[in-house]
């Protein structure tokens, strides 16, 4: 019994230590925003890599989520429910949930693991120490540009993702389900509220922050060579995905209730 308590106690203590350190990195990265002009090249480069680099994958996958959501919705609704509802459900579920959350889970792998392994490799090969020795703050040079790119580019990626998903949903609805374009658009118009767009974009911003911050933190804390780099990448994907799903609940509950 004592062993079990000690085991879970250690896990709990480790969690709080890491949580504190992540918050410290976040604070340091926000502090580095003062030196934006100094790191503008890195910020633009990261925006390009995280934003533009992710777009083809996200748009391709969004098309399939749109198609699947429509087919699923059409399958679930009864014959006496008007078909234009398909448009309503596809739009709202893509904007509020599937667009930001599902795509963030994909990006946790593509962006998060990439950041952790890149910074982790730099850490174990003394490149981070080299940066420090050259009078360049590694948080300013490596963490802040990625974090800033994450929180600014994720919402833009999600706008594209939702647009493509709705287009995919429209295609499935009109070609496979016998729903006319007019009905599909009518369904979307009936439920459209700016509030939903904001909720989706706020979620995307928070997820972008979680993924890039955790990837950067775990990369900067990497030790033990190649094994450590692999662990940092894996832990980033697992931790980011977990936090995304937890924050999905928190944000959905909070934003839809009060916003």
């Amino acid at each position: 019994m004592t062993k079990i308590i000690l085991f879970y106690g250690r896990i709990g203590a480790n969690f709080f230590v890491h949580f504190y350190r992540v918050c410290a990195y976040l604070g340091a990265a926000i502090g580095q925003l003062r030196y934006m002009h100094f790191y503008r090249r890195q910020v633009i480069e990261q925006m390009y890599r995280i934003g533009l680099g992710s777009l083809p994958l996200i748009m391709g996958l969004s098309m399939f989520t749109g198609l699947a959501t429509t087919i699923q919705t059409a399958y679930q609704i009864s014959s006496y429910i008007p078909k234009y509802i398909v448009g309503s459900i596809v739009f709202q579920s893509e904007m509020l949930e599937l667009g930001p959350t599902l795509m963030a889970l994909v990006l946790a792998g593509r962006v998060g693991a990439g950041i952790a392994s890149e910074i982790g490799t730099m850490k174990v090969s003394e490149q981070v120490d080299a940066l420090t020795s050259m009078g360049v703050d590694p948080v300013g040079y490596l963490v802040m540009p990625r974090l800033l790119a994450g929180v600014t580019m994720f919402p833009i990626i999600i706008i594209f993702a939702v647009t493509v998903a709705v287009a995919g949903g429209h295609y499935a609805a009109t070609t496979m389900m016998g729903v006319s374009t007019a009905d599909f658009v009518r369904g979307m118009k009936e439920v459209f509220r700016f509030k939903d767009v904001w909720v989706g974009l706020i979620k995307a911003t928070v997820y972008g922050g979680i993924i890039t911050l955790l990837g950067s933190y775990l990369g900067m804390e990497t030790e033990q060579g190649a094994k450590g780099v692999g662990m940092a990448a894996t832990t980033t994907v697992v931790a980011s995905s977990s936090f995304i799903l937890i924050m999905d609940y928190v944000l959905t509950r909070t934003l839809l209730k009060f916003y």
């Binding site: 890149e118 490799t121 730099m122 090969s125 003394e126 490149q127 120490d129 080299a130 420090t132 020795s133 050259m134 009078g135 360049v136 703050d137």
Partner: peptide, 24 residues
């Protein structure tokens, strides 16, 4: 301070064991 340390580091060159060249 952080700024004083960064200023000092500009006057010190370091050759690391692995050379630590930025591979990107």
């Amino acid at each position: 301070s952080r700024n004083e340390l960064q200023e000092l580091r500009k006057h010190i060159g370091v050759l690391f064991q692995s050379a630590a060249l930025f591979d990107s």
